[in-house]
Design a protein around this nucleic acid. Structure first.
Length: 905
RNA sequence: GGGCGAAUAGCUCAGUCUGGUUCAGAGCGCCUGCCUUACACGCAGGAUGUCGGGGGUUCGAAUCCCUCUUCGCCCACCA
């Protein structure tokens, strides 16, 4: 039906056209799934709109695609919903960097022009990442693609803000928040990444105002002392009992501050006295509130010293100021000591700048009421995490949850829907679903809040906002709630947990019940791949060189549940070569099978190869069918349990080790007409290969589709991506065939090993003598032709060998194999070999005898275990007898122990 | 400071939950021989491991318990 297939698989010829065809056929739309089963929904973690595909995206989306394709083939109406995130800070930073090249800042443009500029930028770069996801084969429903700043999603964001406000779950307040002095915005707790940092702790002396002594305080941030408004000690601390209420004279700033008593102070730490800087530390802020202390904010938004600091400090960077404060203390003789100190310091998750705790007015979401049901659903087992320990992380986070700071001092994002009346007498604060021009209270002029919302405030809604909420759309009714969430653990709190909370609150149901948190892609030194380290792998480069299937296979194969994927950026061949090789192997196996099908393969009686007339099947046929059946079970089970690597390995083993290495080799005589039963062999090969292709399709969609579509009589519109998932069939199970053909394989392997050992020329046939009445005999008789072909055995004889010189082996059922090799071999060497072998068996028998003589073992171990061990012993003894006999016939000399072991190779 | 994970062949990892027929495995790399009419991105054969160290439980431990070492992750307002 088609042109002959090239001997080497070239993914670049195949992938793009196939992908285009899938899209034309609308196969990624759930509506296209034949039969219209139950919906199955995965929400794609929306990549940043400015993102370039990296290995992490590759892994995350490959996993999702595997699951979606799996469920789609199982007849579910699978919807994988893609989108992009406007990524407030990240995107704004990108555009600001571009502006900087023109020597401009966003302030030069002004808000409106800047936002327009960002829109122009994101439209021009056009969410390139979505195209890149297509290149790796992602079967998302692109017709439903959303953007978190779309009109629809913006409406949802506003609706949610207003409702939460009305419910008292959104509030505005003056608190210490995490502030990035480079991005010039507040951050949530999650966005301030704590990193262990080596720093110092300075012990500073604050003299009592009356000159009668001093109090020593310790600090890791000496520059903040410029804003100190008190020193606190524990109220019960006897050392300071007499000092409570007295005043200290702050050095450097020359200000009087009180000594207060507060429970928050740990008397056991340092000197037991703490400097209190309400404007620059959360704990101090609380202490300040309790004691009515003033707040002195000594820093500008850029973390330079503000006008509230002494004049000589003003404008100094915080670290310059730190040095200067320390120096002045030293000069004053008030620096008691400096110690190295390792502690956790917050860093901006977008630019890695050290975050400054800063007092400011921000909007917050009260999280505790939202967290409660999210916690309950976890504890009652509704929500399941893979790996399970991620559930513990989830639980801990919810238990200790703090309010969410959602306002950002950015320009790119959802503007906060709050209007303030400009009339000072009215001063009404209005929260509204629609833009306000006038104050609903007094009708006066209003101004909208300048800030925008945290980008995660839109992404935590996508499971329903992307389906049309708050409208009651058909999509919403059909596809909410979804099922599986596939995510990197990094965004468990940012995104996953919050989606569960919003889903429960606004929809009454969690958006997913199964959360699969996969590992991180790292280099061989276990470092996270990143641009700055230059240790990244470009998935598109891999696609170009090895193909998307190879990329996907390698990612999946290297990934076991809950562990990281280690790849070597400097050696793509090692990582991705095997995937490419496997695709090529498939291609060639397909080439052979398909080119030998003169027409449609003879039906074996239905969907399953099991239903063929048994009497027509050879042992090898029954064996491959049974192996195929086992693979269907293994792979299906592994996919269901997110053990994608096991699924891939199972199919790999079947295709390469069973189908290609054994079955295809075995049937060649039948295929080429040298033996009868060609139609059965063709049918069995075609059917099992078809099944294998379907089992592998989720992981390697392109090559499997390319081959599957080339089966004769396949309708032009047929696609493997909606072909039915292979169903297990009891009738295909055949333990006897597995065991018996296994013995045939053992024999072939044994003869091959003997041939290699004695350097028999590849083209030269040998004879083989098989002794013993084990299960092997019947099987070998059935498969004589196989043995002849695959081991180049010209004659397979059953009985006792007459010859003396040759190679030997023993199969697992005790059957002895002898390959006469005439005078071609070195008798002395063979004696040595046999001697060593006898020696080894002797040791095994000794050990086994001891084991079985052990009263404890025999009485306590289960009977079947004991029996198994007995059989082992018997088999070894038998082998020993055979070998000793062989040595005698060779004339090696009686005592195997002495002359044998010495030369044992 | 709390919590958790990992350590198995030169490399990357299965196997550990449910001790004993995968128990010592796979892929890559390495060695030997083969261009055998699907595939040299291949075929056949082969070598390599105190299953991180130590202790314990058990008839029996890579697998269960304790401990130590080394990496890694998450959480954390002791300044």
């Amino acid at each position: 039906m088609t042109a002959p297939l090239a001997p080497q698989y070239d993914p670049s010829d195949i992938e793009a056209p196939l992908y285009a065809w899938w899209q034309e056929r609308g196969l990624f739309r759930p509506e296209s799934v034949p039969g219209g089963g139950q919906p199955y929904v995965i929400m794609m973690p929306p990549p940043n709109v400015t993102a370039e595909l990296h290995a992490g995206h590759g892994l995350n989306n490959t996993v999702q695609d595997v699951l979606v394709r799996f469920e789609r083939m199982r007849g579910r109406r699978a919807l994988w919903l893609p989108g992009t995130d406007h990524a407030g800070i990240a995107t704004q930073n990108v555009v600001e960097r571009l502006l900087a090249r023109e020597g401009l800042t966003r302030f030069d443009l002004g808000r409106e022009a800047f936002v327009e500029r960002v829109w122009a930028y994101v439209q021009q770069t056009g969410a390139r990442i979505l195209e890149q996801l297509k290149a790796i084969g992602c079967s998302a429903d692109w017709s439903r693609t959303y953007f978190t700043l779309d009109e629809d999603l913006s409406r949802a964001v506003r609706e949610v803000f207003v409702r939460l406000y009305e419910d008292g779950l959104v509030y505005r307040g003056h608190y210490i928040i995490n502030w990035c002095p480079r991005c010039l915005t507040a951050l949530s707790n999650e966005e301030a990444e704590k990193e262990e940092t080596d720093g110092h702790i300075w012990h500073l002396r604050y003299p009592l105002a009356d000159g009668t002594g001093h109090v020593t305080v310790a600090t890791t941030r000496p520059e903040t002392m410029l804003g100190d408004t008190a020193v606190a000690v524990h109220p019960g601390d006897e050392r300071y009992a007499g000092l409570l209420g007295r005043e200290l004279r702050l050095p450097v700033v020359d200000r009087l501050v009180p000594i207060v008593g507060d429970e928050a102070v740990d008397p056991a730490f340092g000197s037991g006295a703490v400097k209190v800087t309400p404007a620059h530390d959360p704990t101090d802020f609380e202490i300040g509130k309790r004691h009515g202390l003033p707040s002195v904010d000594v820093m500008t938004p850029e973390a330079r010293m503000s006008l509230a600091a002494p004049e000589r400090f003003q404008g100094l960077d915080r670290y310059e100021a730190r040095k200067r404060v320390v120096r002045e203390f030293e000069e004053l003789g008030l620096l008691e000591k400096v110690e190295p100190h390792r502690h956790a310091v917050g860093h901006c998750y977008r630019c890695d700048t050290v975050v400054e705790p800063r007092l400011s007015e921000q909007w917050f979401v009260r999280m505790e009421p939202l967290a409660r049901p999210a916690l309950a659903r976890y504890r009652d087992g509704t929500l399941q995490f893979t790996p399970e320990r991620r559930g513990d992380d989830y639980e801990r986070w919810l238990v200790g949850i703090r309010d969410w700071c959602i306002s950002r001092q950015l320009w790119w994002g959802h503007r906060i829907p709050v209007w303030y009346c400009k009339d000072e007498g009215c001063a009404r604060v209005s929260v509204s679903r629609t833009d306000l021009q006038r104050c609903p209270g007094c009708g006066g002029a209003v101004r909208q809040d300048d800030d925008v919302l945290d980008t995660w405030f839109s992404s935590w809604l996508v499971p329903f906002s992307s389906l049309g909420w708050p409208e009651r759309t058909a999509d919403l009714a059909t596809y909410y709630p979804g099922h599986t969430l596939v995510s990197a653990p990094e965004i468990l709190f940012f995104w996953v947990a919050r989606m569960i909370m919003s889903g429960l609150h606004f929809m009454g149901e969690a958006p997913y019940t199964r959360m699969y948190l996969h590992g991180t892609v790292r280099d061989t030194r276990h470092r996270k791949m990143s641009k700055s380290l230059g240790n990244g792998i470009d998935p598109l480069e891999v696609v170009r060189r090895y193909g998307a299937d190879a990329l996907r296979y390698s990612l999946v194969a290297g990934m076991s549940v809950g562990t990281d994927v280690i790849l070597d950026p400097d050696d793509l061949e090692t990582s991705f070569g095997p995937g490419r090789n496997f695709a090529n192997k498939l291609w060639n196996a397909g080439r052979l099978i398909l080119s030998n099908l003169e027409g449609p393969p003879r039906p074996l009686g239905g969907d399953s190869p099991a239903v063929v007339r048994r009497e027509e099947l050879t042992l090898a046929d029954r064996w491959i069918i049974a192996r195929c059946e086992a693979t269907v079970r293994e792979a299906t089970d592994a996919y269901e349990r997110f053990r994608l690597n096991e699924a891939a390995a199972s199919v790999y083993r079947f295709i390469w080790s069973d189908l290609a290495d054994w079955y295809i080799e075995q049937i060649k005589p039948r295929l080429y007409g040298d033996a009868p039963g060609g139609d059965v062999a063709r049918a069995v090969a075609a059917q099992t290969f078809d099944v294998a292709l379907r089992l592998l399709h989720p992981v390697m969609p392109f090559v499997t589709e390319a081959l599957w579509r080339r089966f004769p009589d396949r309708p032009a519109e047929a696609s493997i991506s909606i072909a039915p998932w292979p169903r297990p069939d009891r009738r295909a199970e055949d333990a006897g065939a597995l065991r018996e053909f296994g013995l045939v394989q053992e024999l072939v392997g044994a003869v091959r090993a003997i041939r290699a050992e004695y350097g028999v020329q590849p083209g030269q046939a040998v004879r083989a003598v098989v002794t013993g009445d084990g299960a092997a005999r019947a099987a070998l008789e059935l498969e004589q032709a196989t043995v002849a072909r695959l081991a180049r055995v010209s004659e397979l004889v059953f009985g006792e060998p007459a010859e003396r010189v040759g190679g030997h082996a023993v199969l697992s059922d005790g059957t002895a194999v002898f390959v006469p090799l005439g005078d071609a071999i070195d008798v002395e060497r063979e004696c040595g070999r046999l001697g060593a072998e006898v020696e080894r068996l002797l040791r095994m028998v000794d050990g086994q005898e001891k084991k079985l003589a052990n009263e404890q073992f025999v009485s306590r171990a289960p009977a079947e275990v004991v029996e198994r061990e007995r059989q082992k012993l018997a088999a070894w003894r038998e082998q020993q007898v055979v070998l000793v006999d062989k040595r005698e016939r060779l004339g090696c000399g009686a005592a195997g122990r002495r002359d044998g072991g010495a030369d044992g190779r």
